[in-house]
Design a protein around this nucleic acid. Structure first.
Lengths: 217, 217
DNA sequence: GGAACAATTAGACCGGGTGTCTAGTTTATG
DNA sequence: CATAAACTAGACACCCGGTCTAATTGTTCC
């Protein structure tokens, strides 16, 4: 339940070689904890020490692991982007299903993920986009890149659907994918608001409908 | 440009009858200023005195006008809901245009509004939905109601489109409207992120496409 | 053994801010 | 002229923010 052991005794100087968690492990835990908190509350409402505390790392150590909160945020964005890219691949490249089925399976998995945290956590990228006016400008381009990445993975799947004749080859797959992600973020927002997976499902249903198929989900 | 005269001299006790702005006027200005700030930064990042200061009302007076920050927030939600409902009516009931044209005109107006503030301000309801996990629970139902209201106004317009034969009468107008608003919030989010009206236009184009018409915008 | 270096963090810096409320001052009312 | 109504100064009692220096401890290598 808790993210880390609450407080082991803490010594001051350099830790003995074989006792301490290695640098990269601690760094990873900080990123993990940061992701959990920022997906729930966004960037500006979460303080550094809240994250540090949850991992049992003393406040003074933050700048040993990261240059600043801004840089930390940048790493979170990229970690989240990659995490989700992997998840997308897991579903969208799964040849056991048709391309459209893969999308549905991805959506179902994401919905389950939101439910697991009582709809308190959303999409980090969406959260930050919404906060944009409070954020360091350096985040803007990075957020866009993440979306672009997700979109092109989705577009590839849609193109496959086209060559397999599952959807019409006339529509621009890239644009459909952009469009999916735009709407998806809206659906995530409403899922948080309503505390229900319904918006996610309804949106997806409509999207697949747009693709030209009738019976879905 | 500035919201109010910066600081007129301020006397302490009850103001003379004909000198002071009436209670309701001040209240209205506070709500106005609150809307401007919350549409930009959300609820939790905006402090009460930031709003007070911008209107030239001393901090001590807040509880003269509102019971608490929570109640103030509730009034903002309802004011924003009504403001937008009026705007929707202005466009969606304008019989000088076809129903679908009205929707396009509404979108164009909203896009212009976002551009006017350099894409820093979004939709208050969307902002708060995103923040939900940081908000008083009392906001949840209220936010949903606002969406429902907007949706039914939109649905009415879509039904008119159906009776006029502009779109197929087979689809459920209510659901299409819900779907529009879900996607719309996503598009607003991305417009903020990209600092461009493009997401708004692209999304709308796709939506109208879904309604079955080809040439749009 | 002991210098030099690497790894870690205590603790404070400095400057905010939060929402709330009481006690007070001033005008209006009857 | 007492009482009531309208308004606000100023503080309460917090907790927070991100950052950085100086100190402490372990390791390495002569």
């Amino acid at each position: 339940m808790s993210i880390h052991t609450p407080d082991r005794p803490r010594r001051r100087g350099r830790p003995p070689k074989h006792s301490a968690r290695p640098y990269d492990e601690v760094r990873g835990e900080l990123i993990q904890a940061g992701l959990a908190m920022l997906t729930e509350k966004g960037y500006s409402s979460v303080g550094i020490d809240e994250i540090l505390r949850s991992v049992g790392v003393p406040k003074g150590s933050f700048y040993h692991y990261f240059k600043s909160k801004e840089e930390f945020g940048q790493e979170l964005i990229s970690a989240y982007g990659q995490y989700f890219a992997r998840k997308l691949d897991r579903f969208l490249l799964d040849t056991a299903f048709t391309p459209l089925e893969r999308i549905q399976r991805f959506v179902a998995d994401a919905a389950e993920g939101m439910a697991r945290y009582q709809f308190r956590r959303g999409c980090l990228i969406g959260n930050l986009g919404q906060e944009m006016s409070l954020l360091p400008e350096s985040f803007r381009a990075q957020l866009q890149e993440v979306f672009n990445d997700w979109q092109s993975r989705t577009a590839a799947c849609l193109k496959e659907a086209q060559t397999l004749g599952e959807i019409s080859p006339q529509q621009d797959a890239e644009q459909l994918a952009e469009w999916f992600w735009t709407g998806w973020e809206g659906a995530v927002l409403r899922a948080k608001m309503e505390g229900s997976t319904q918006p996610l499902e309804r949106f997806t249903q409509g999207f697949l409908h747009l693709l030209g198929q009738e019976k879905v989900l």
